[in-house]
Computed example of a mutant assay.
Amino acid sequence: MCILFFKLDVNPPTDGYKLILASNRDEYLDKPTKPASWWQDHPHILSGLDMRKGRVGGTWLGISKEGRLASLLNILQPQLDRNAKGRGPLVRNFIKSDVDCLPYLQEIAKEGQLYNGFNLLVMDLPRSNSIPQIGYYSNMSGKDPELLTPGIHSLCNAIIDKPWKKAIVGKRKFEEIVNSATKRTEEKLVDQLIEFLNDDTPHPEPQINIQCNGELTLKQQQERSAVCVKSPDLRCGSRTNTIILVNAANKVKYVERTLQEPIDIENLKWLRNNYDFNLSSASSSY
């Protein structure tokens, strides 16, 4: 269970942002994860990493100094195919490559049936004044990969054409925040977006139970209907918040707030990592 909101402006004001992105990674608390850092084998790429046996090195969201960005959200389904291909490399491979968004997704679509359900978002944010590319593909939609128009979008654990209520309601709140982004400092904008990502207000959604063939209790459905998922009974929930800001001058701020491992559900401890860099050079701080 994950959710992502973003605004892409191809012609931002000088004090504005080319990209504002806010994302929650929802996952079981016992799955080992490396907090966001620069990759050792590709030091121009920044992301958190899956550290599970057999899945080491996969990721759900990342960005490169060259402006390559990708995010993967699973589609909620009642039965997972344990023999399906791992989805983590779908993000990793795009960020490492220099293939345009649509051709990359078209290659993935050729073997889309080999994976469990997913939404895949890919972006190329050029340092020049050329128009950024945004590509989207879901192997559960029955549609070909497509290019999205700039603007405000939201994705959750359903296909983009049938969003859950929390994605619809959250998109409106996200729009309010980002449309007044220049009225506050960068730090206050980040704090407001993190507060937004931690809203656990339920937005009842029948589709959640339908996608699970009625296997969830009413309580579990309510937990999953919020932007911030908290499900202590199943030991899962929104364990990582990520904010990515790219201003008009191509300066990037990457902020990750994530649960410290090992995770004690009775005594949650959070880590916050901040990275500030340009699309041509980078430095990090903690």
Rank of each mutant, 00 (worst) to 15 (best):
C2Q: 03
I3H: 04
L8K: 07
N11Q: 10
P12H: 01
I20P: 00
L21Y: 08
D26Q: 10
E27A: 05
D30S: 05
D30F: 08
K31G: 03
K34P: 00
W39H: 13
S47K: 06
D50M: 11
R52W: 03
K53M: 03
G54N: 01
G57R: 05
T59Q: 03
L61D: 12
S64G: 07
G67P: 06
L69W: 08
L76S: 10
Q77N: 07
R82I: 02
N83K: 15
K85N: 13
P89R: 09
R92K: 11
C101A: 09
L105M: 12
A109I: 03
Q113K: 13
Q113N: 11
G117A: 11
N119D: 13
L120R: 07
L120F: 01
P126I: 14
P132I: 13
P132T: 11
Y137A: 01
E146N: 09
E146M: 15
L148S: 13
T149V: 13
S154K: 02
S154T: 05
K165A: 10
V169R: 09
G170L: 05
E175W: 00
S180K: 12
K183T: 12
K188L: 09
K188S: 13
L189D: 04
L197Y: 03
D199L: 00
D200H: 14
T201S: 13
P202L: 13
P202F: 14
P202C: 09
H203P: 02
H203M: 08
E205L: 09
P206M: 06
I208P: 08
C212H: 04
C212L: 15
G214N: 02
E215S: 15
T217Y: 11
L218D: 15
K219S: 10
E223Q: 15
R224A: 12
D233R: 02
L234T: 07
T240V: 10
N241Q: 08
T242Y: 06
I243Q: 06
L245N: 04
V246Y: 06
N247I: 06
R257C: 06
T258P: 00
P262K: 10
D264H: 13
I265P: 04
W270A: 09
L271W: 04
D276Y: 14
N278G: 06
L279M: 15
S280E: 14
